[in-house]
Amino acid sequence: MSNSAESLAASGKRARSKAANRRAILSAGRRVFARIGFDATTVRDIIRETDLAAGTFYNYFKSKEEVFEAIAEDSTYRFRTRLSDVRARATTFEDYIQQAYHAYFSFVAAENEEAIRMGAPHMALIGVRVDTPEMLAIADEIRSDLDHVLSASGAPVTDIDYLTAAAIGIAREMGDHMLQRRPVDAVAATKFATALLLGGVREVSGKPL
C-alpha cells in the first residue's frame, strides 16, 4: 500500500473513531439525563456511562450543557426530515396540521421509548426545549408552511406569527404531557391537538376551513 493510501486509510479510521466517540457520549448523556435529570447530572456521570477517558470527553464537549444542546440539535435535525415528508404530502391546511402533529407526537414517543420502558423518571427528548439553529429553522419552515396552506385554502387568518407560536406551543406542551401518560398514545394526542388548533383558527376567522 502506498504512503498516500495508508494516509487516507488512517484518516478514515480516525474520522470513524471520532464519530463513534461522539455518538457514545451523546447516547450516554441521553441515558443519564433520562435517569436522573439534567440538573442532577454531572460531566462525570456522563463519562462513567461510557468507556471513554475524561480527556477524551473534553475533546468533544466542554460541559454537560454542550452535550444537552448537541442531543437537542440531533433530535431536531431528525424530526426535520419528517416535517419535510409532511410538507410533500399535505394538500390542505387541515391535512398539514393533522400530519404534522402526528409526525411530531410519533417522533416524541419513539425517541422516549427506551426511557419509558426502563421507568426513567425524566424524559429523554430535549430537542424541543432548546433554541438551537435547527429548532429555529423548523419554526421558520412551519411558519412558511402554514402561510402557504392557509393562502391556498383561502382561510382569512392574518396573524401567521401567532398561529405558528400556537401550533408549536401546543405540540411542546402536549408532547410533554403525552409522555407522562400510560399508554403513551400519539394518535390520541394528534386528534386532540388537531381539534384544538383548528377550532381556534375557525373561531378567529369565523369561517370553516
Rank of each mutant, 00 (worst) to 15 (best):
G127K: 07
G127D: 06
R129M: 14
R129Y: 06
D131L: 10
T132M: 04
T132W: 01
T132A: 02
P133C: 06
P133Y: 04
P133I: 03
E134N: 03
L136F: 00
L136R: 15
I138R: 08
D140E: 14
E141F: 09
E141G: 00
E141Y: 04
R143Y: 04
L146N: 07
L146T: 03
D147P: 01
A152G: 10
A152F: 06
S153K: 00
G154L: 08
A155T: 15
T158L: 05
T158H: 11
T158V: 12
D161I: 07
D161H: 11
Y162M: 11
L163M: 10
T164Q: 07
A165F: 08
A166M: 13
A167M: 15
A167W: 04
A167G: 02
G175S: 10
D176N: 08
H177M: 09
H177T: 14
H177D: 11
Q180N: 08
Q180H: 03
R181N: 01
V184Q: 01
V184W: 00
D185F: 02
A186N: 05
A188W: 00
A189D: 06
T190N: 06
T190I: 06
A193T: 09
T194M: 03
A195T: 08
A195R: 13
L196N: 08
L196E: 08
L197D: 03
L197M: 05
L198T: 15
R202F: 01
E203D: 10
